[in-house]
Design a protein around this nucleic acid. Structure first.
Length: 280
DNA sequence: AACTGCCGCAACCGCAGAATG
DNA sequence: GCATTCTGCGGTTGCGGCAGT
């Protein structure tokens, strides 16, 4: 299981903050080859960074569509709700927040929200409906380790996996930033090939949907594992008629200031629409 | 102005699952 | 089935900036 750290044996592997020059090299390479195959990135670019560092830099900082800076109260609410529901599953939480990375959310939670929630919980005790101390044992409360959150994932369309049309990378705030931004915009412009791929994906999805409709994509709905089918992943939320109600209720719940009310609705639905029992 | 402590964020580390041969 | 490699995730660390003294 696992493997030794990729950077341990690397002699001369650079660590620490990335320079704008390195960013440009990395973005240029990804622009040409696309993200992935990270092992080959330092080899082919000459970057004195380990593959992991390259991937992290891309996913947490350079990737198009990443929004930086202040979290809105709206986003805060979503994070608080989802953290209470999912626990420290930052990647899962990030999938519901457009333009935010899991690292960003994790940092924001650790530095701001955790204290905030604590503070709000202590005086009044019920300002936020966070997980009670007996959440794990309570049969009526979601357990992060149970499979129920997967149905949530299936119902709500993860957004962060999609290329976005905005690039708000703030730093490096100099000429290099502009160069990086230009590179990214060029990369994001849909090419004919990308359009064709999209069409194929949509067609693929249609076929999958037809097949899946009969069995209601049982496994994928329950487990939320739509990632193996990019086409399905693209449009899974609107496609899942059975979970449409769940989706809207989840939206209500996530965006509502009164989470408890919509949660009641969710509990009701959970028993009816999903193939497997939900353990709220 | 100099020092100190705190805070926020980017990056690193180690583990684990998935993929591949 | 096993070993190896790749990728993703969550926890933690280290550094720079800022506020307070």
């Amino acid at each position: 299981m696992g493997r030794p750290p990729c950077c341990d044996n690397g002699v001369g592997v650079k660590k620490g903050p990335w320079t704008p020059e390195e960013d440009i090299v990395l973005v240029s390479y990804i622009q040409q080859h696309g993200p992935g195959n990270w092992r080959s990135v330092p080899e082919n670019t000459g970057l004195m960074r380990c593959s992991k560092s390259c991937r992290l830099r891309w996913t947490n900082y350079l990737r198009p569509g990443i929004k930086r800076g202040n979290f809105t109260p709206h986003e805060e609410g979503i994070i608080i709700h989802l953290q209470a529901l999912l626990g420290n599953k930052w990647a899962a939480i990030a999938s519901y927040l457009p333009q935010r990375t899991d690292n960003d959310i994790k940092n924001y939670w650790n530095t701001h929200l955790k204290k905030k929630v604590k503070r709000l919980q202590q005086p009044a005790g019920d300002s936020f409906q966070t997980a009670p101390s007996n959440a794990v044992t309570s049969p009526n409360y979601y357990s992060p380790t149970s499979s129920s959150h997967h149905s949530l994932q299936a119902g709500v369309q993860p957004i962060s996996s999609y290329p976005n049309t905005t690039c708000t990378t703030s730093a490096p705030s100099n000429n290099e930033a502009g160069a990086i931004s230009n590179l990214l915009q060029t990369w994001m412009r849909p090419s004919p090939a990308a359009t064709a791929n999209c069409k194929i994906a949509m067609q693929e999805f249609q076929e999958e949907q037809d097949a899946a409709a009969s069995i209601l994509c049982k496994d994928q709905i329950v487990t939320g594992d739509v990632s193996k089918s990019p086409a399905l992943e693209m449009v899974v939320a609107p496609a899942m008629g059975a979970s449409t109600a769940t989706f809207s209720l989840l939206e209500d719940w996530l965006l509502d200031d009164m989470p408890g009310q919509a949660m009641d609705g969710l509990m009701g639905i959970s028993a009816g629409c999903c193939a497997d029992p939900i353990m709220f």
